[in-house]
Design a protein around this nucleic acid. Structure first.
Lengths: 244, 244
DNA sequence: CGGCCATTTGACACCTGTCAATGTCTGTGG
DNA sequence: CCACAGACATTGACAGGTGTCAAATGGCCG
C-alpha cells in the first residue's frame, strides 16, 4: 500500500480530493499491470474504445499528430501521474500517436477495471473525471496560446504550466524542475521552429526570467514570467465544486 | 415524431448509426424544452457539472475564450445538430463562453434526462458519445491547423471542415453553404488578424478556389482546396468500429 | 578519435500584424 | 426620400515577428 500512497497519480488526486482507505485500495488495484516502454518508440494508440489506458508513473510522454507534409504538432505532454489514453476509454478519441520521450513506466488499466473502480468508489470516479477535464482544459489553453500569444509569452506560459503540473506530483516548484524535452519538442508543441525556440529561450534567459539548460528549467523571476505570459492557473486547479 | 426525424441532430446521428423507433423516441424526449437566444448575447456556461446542455437546432454558435489583453480565441463553432456544453455534463469542462452568432433555437437537455436516455438506449448513447469524440477530434485538428498550417491552408481547411459538417445535416455540399460568420469570427478562430483574413480570402478567390461573400461560401475548385489544405476528412467521420 | 545529435548563431526572406483610409451596405431618424 | 451613423469589407504601406538556410560549436558514445 505504501507504493500507492507514493504514486504520482495518488499525489495528484489527493491534492483535490481526500482519498479514504477504500479509495486508495481501488487505486492500488488500478496500478497492477506494470509495463515499461523505451524512449522514442511509439506506443501506438489507435483510439479504439475497447482499448486500455495507462497511468504514467515515471518518465515523460507526448501525444502528437503527424501532418502529411511531415511536420508534427504535439498536442499534449504527459508527466508522472497523468493518464494516457483515458479519453479513448471513456469516449472514442481522435487518432494521435503517443511517443515516450524517455524510458517510461506505466500501469496498464483495462476498461473494465476502470469502470469497476468507478462503480465501487464514486469519489475516485469524480477525482479521475476531474483529471480528465483538466487535461481537456489544457488542450484548450494550448489552442489559445498558439492562436493568440506571441512566441515569448507562449514559451513562458508553457513552462509555467508544466511547472504547476509537476509541482502537483512533487517534481518541481517555483524554483524550477527537471525537463527531458529537447528544443525540437518545444518547437513541435508550440508551433514554432526549433531555431526560433532557441532564440526565445535565449531572450528569456537574458531577461533574467528563466533558464532552460541541460534538461533543467530554472525560474529566476517567477512573477515576471507570470506577468509576461499572463498566466492564470485557475484552469489547472479548478478549485470549484469539488469534493472536500 | 415528424419533427424529430427532421431534426439536424437526428440527421447527423443517422449518418452513422441506424436509429430505431425506440431510439428516435428517446431523441424526441431530449428535444422537449425548446429555447431560443438572440444573436450576440452570451449564453454564459460556467462549466458546472450539474448544468444542462443544449442541442442546437437552428443557427450558429461559437465557443471562445477571452484573453486578459482583450483578444479572443474561438475554440469551436456549433452548427445545427451539434451539442453545446455536452462535455460539461459528461465531464467538467473548462471555462469558455458561448455566443450565439445569429438568433438561435436550441433544446435544453438536463443531465438526468441525458443519463436516462443513455441508460435506456445504449445505441443512442454510443451515437452521442461518437458525436462528442468527434467534437474533440475537431478541437485537436484545430490546434494542429493553427500550429502547423499557414494562413491559406488554415482557411481552406477550416472552410472544408465546415462544409463537411454542414453536409451532414443537409445544409451544404461540395458546391458551398450559407455561412453567417464575419471575417472577424474567422480571424478569432484561425488566430489571424481580420485584415489578413481578408487578404487570404481574396487570394483564395483570385486563385479560383473558393468565394466567401454575402454570407455564402462557394467552392469553385473543391479538389484544389483539398490539396491546398491537405484536408483529410477521416477525423470527421471516423468510420471505424461503429454500430452498423 | 570520429560520428551523431542537440544547441547556438547569423543573415536573409517573407508571412502576418498594425495602422490608416476608403468603400459598401443597412437601418434609423429627420 | 435623403442624410447619417455604424458595422463589415477592402486595400495599401510599412514594420516586425518567425521561418528557412547554413554553418559552427559542443557533448556523448561507440
Amino acid at each position: 500500500m505504501k507504493t500507492i500512497e507514493n504514486s504520482p497519480l495518488t499525489q495528484k488526486l489527493s491534492a483535490f480530493v481526500a482519498l479514504s482507505e477504500v479509495e486508495l485500495a481501488a487505486l492500488e488495484r488500478l496500478h497492477q499491470r506494470r509495463r515499461s516502454f523505451v524512449a522514442g518508440r511509439d506506443m501506438v494508440h489507435q483510439g479504439q474504445s475497447a482499448q486500455a489506458a495507462y497511468i504514467l508513473s515515471k518518465g515523460w510522454v507526448c501525444s502528437y499528430k503527424l501532418q502529411p507534409d511531415g511536420t508534427r504538432q504535439i498536442v499534449d505532454f504527459q508527466v508522472p501521474g497523468d493518464f494516457l489514453g483515458l479519453r479513448s476509454v471513456l469516449l472514442r478519441t481522435s487518432d494521435h500517436s503517443f511517443e515516450p520521450i524517455v524510458d517510461i513506466e506505466a500501469a496498464e488499466v483495462l476498461t473494465v477495471d476502470l469502470l469497476d473502480a468507478f462503480a465501487q468508489t464514486p469519489r475516485l470516479a469524480t477525482a479521475i473525471l476531474w483529471a480528465a477535464s483538466r487535461d481537456e482544459a489544457m488542450v484548450v489553453e494550448h489552442l489559445v496560446g498558439i492562436g493568440r500569444r506571441d512566441a515569448d509569452a507562449r514559451m513562458a506560459h508553457f513552462l509555467l504550466e508544466l511547472g504547476s503540473r509537476l509541482a502537483l506530483v512533487g517534481m518541481g516548484g517555483k524554483e524550477g524542475f527537471e525537463c527531458p524535452l529537447t528544443q525540437y519538442h518545444l518547437a513541435d508543441a508550440l508551433g514554432l521552429s526549433a531555431v526560433h525556440v532557441n532564440r526565445v529561450l535565449r531572450q528569456l534567459r537574458e531577461c533574467g526570467l528563466v533558464t532552460f539548460r541541460d534538461s533543467h528549467v530554472t525560474f529566476h523571476d517567477y512573477q515576471g514570467l507570470v506577468t509576461l505570459a499572463e498566466f492564470d492557473a485557475t484552469y489547472l486547479d479548478q478549485t470549484g465544486p469539488l469534493l472536500k
